[in-house]
């Protein structure tokens, strides 16, 4: 059985891998490789965010009664990251290398500090408060 912090953190690393591979491909002007990796990233990214927003955050809010706390900030940051991902989609479509790399540096930094807050604080708090944490992760793994 995998815990919430272990599983969700491993998903962050997986997203990082696809993200950096796409970024390296753009830097080398290898646009087809970039598109493949970017697609893998986008799918993982979207799934991860929805697992948090639709399952983990509501359960955590219910268990702790903290509806306007960390989860609220995380939701707002998700929105901002989605906007950056959209901008990067456009840059990739138009093959705008400098634009893409400037945005990727930005999203990278934003993702890393967002992930750090989740990994250092939110996930351990979830593991502590959600008694059904491992079951939830099993359902994620099965999906």
């Amino acid at each position: 059985m995998t815990s919430i912090p272990d599983y969700m953190t491993s998903k962050h690393r997986e997203c990082d891998d696809y993200f950096t591979e796409a970024e390296s491909a753009v830097a080398k002007d290898n646009w087809s490789e970039a598109e493949t990796k970017w697609q893998l990233f986008s799918d993982e990214f979207a799934q991860h965010l929805s697992q948090e927003e639709e399952t983990l955050f509501p359960q955590f809010e219910q268990a702790t009664g903290m509806t306007a706390g960390p989860t609220q900030v995380m939701r707002m940051e998700h929105q901002q990251m989605r906007a950056l991902v959209q901008d990067m989609n456009n840059a990739l479509e138009k093959k705008l290398k400098d634009e893409y790399l400037g945005l990727s540096e930005t999203l990278m930094v934003m993702m890393q500090q967002h992930n750090m807050k989740e990994e250092m604080m939110l996930y351990p708090m979830m593991a502590q408060h959600l008694t059904n944490g491992e079951q939830l992760i099993s359902s994620f793994e099965a999906s």
Partner: peptide, 14 residues
């Protein structure tokens, strides 16, 4: 965070 539309004003890192 509170004014999402203003995101477009922010420069990228480079």
């Amino acid at each position: 965070l509170m004014d999402f539309s203003a995101m477009q004003l922010i420069p990228n890192m480079h």
